[in-house]
Design a protein around this nucleic acid. Structure first.
Lengths: 150, 150
DNA sequence: TGCGATTGCATCGCGTACGATTATTTTGGC
DNA sequence: GCCAAAATAATCGTACGCGATGCAATCGCA
C-alpha cells in the first residue's frame, strides 16, 4: 500500500529563502541606520549618494550622475532641485550642449565633506563586520547587480 | 627635503566601496527584474511579498505581516487596501479584538499561487548563481540585517 | 469599577523610484 | 544647409517607505 498523498497543496516559496527579500530588507535597515547620521548633514540617503559622486568628481551632468547611481532623470531632476534649493549644488545648462545640465558643488556643498567623513566609520561599525568582510560582501553584491542588469 | 604635501584635499569616500550602495542598487536591480514577471500577476513587488507571507500562512493581522516584512502600518495599510480593491485579500476587524485587522486570501488570491510558482526559478536563473551560492549570500545578508536593526 | 497607559491601525506629508510621455537641442545622412 | 533621428532633461501619475500624529479598543492596576 502506497503512502497516503498529502492532502495539502505544495508549499509556496519561503520568504526567508528569498535573496531579493534579504537585499530589500537589509537595504531598508541601512536606510534607518543612516537616517539620524544624515539628518545632521541635512541630506536624505539618495541625496548623500549624489554628494558622494560630486565629492569624487565635481561638475557632472545629470546623466553621468544617473549612470553612477543607476537612476534616471525622472528620479534625479526633482531630487537635484531640492538639493539646489538647499544650497548644496548649482544646476545650469551646459553652454556647449544646451541639452545637458551640469551640477556643481557650492562652497557649502564642498564644505559638507568634512562633516560627512565621520559617517562611513560609524556605519561600518554598526555592521559588525571587519573592513575585509565588508569589502568581500560589497564585491559579491556588486557582481550580482551587474549580472542582474546584464 | 621632505616630499611636497599634496595640495589636494584628502579624497572623500568612494561610492564603489559602499556596502549600503551595493545593497541599494542591487535591490533596485532586482525590482526591475521582477517588474515584468509580477506585472503578469498584477502585483507590485511589496504586494508580492505580502502574498508570499499569506501563502505561507493565511489569516494574519497587519502587525504580523509587518513583522515579517519589517514594515509599519503607515506603509501596509494603503498597500493592503489596494490589494483588497484588486480582489486578492479581504480586510476585516477581528471580533475578538477590534483593534486588529485580519487579512485573508480570497479564492482569487489563493489561486494566484499557481501562477506565482514559476517566478522564483526565473529569478534564480537571472542571478547566475547556484542555489547554494544564493542561499549563502541570502544568509550573509540576513545576518547583516539582523545586526543593523539591533 | 474607573481611568490613564498601551496597543494596533489609519492618516498625512514628504521624498524617492519608475514607466510613459514631452520638449528642446544636437547629430548625421543626403 | 535640411530634416529625420537620436540624445538629454523635465514632467506626470502611481506606488512605496517612513516620521509624526490621531483615534479607538484594550489592558493594568489602584
Amino acid at each position: 500500500m502506497p503512502a497516503a498523498q498529502p492532502p495539502l497543496p505544495p508549499p509556496g516559496p519561503k520568504l526567508s529563502e528569498f535573496l531579493c527579500f534579504a537585499l530589500y530588507s537589509a537595504s531598508h535597515a541601512f536606510n534607518r541606520l543612516y537616517k539620524p547620521l544624515l539628518d545632521e548633514l541635512g541630506l536624505t540617503y539618495p541625496q548623500y549618494l549624489v554628494m558622494v559622486t560630486l565629492w569624487e568628481r565635481d561638475d557632472r551632468t545629470v546623466g553621468e550622475i544617473g549612470e553612477q547611481l543607476f537612476l534616471e532623470s525622472n528620479t534625479l531632476t526633482p531630487l537635484l532641485k531640492r538639493m539646489e534649493a538647499a544650497g548644496l549644488v548649482s544646476r545650469s545648462r551646459d553652454p556647449a550642449d544646451e541639452r545637458q545640465v551640469r551640477l556643481r558643488l557650492t562652497d557649502e556643498g564642498r564644505a559638507l565633506l568634512d562633516k560627512a567623513r565621520r559617517v562611513p566609520p560609524c556605519v561600518l561599525e554598526a555592521t559588525g563586520l571587519t573592513a575585509d568582510e565588508a569589502r568581500s560582501l560589497t564585491d559579491q553584491i556588486g557582481a550580482l547587480r551587474t549580472t542582474l542588469s546584464r
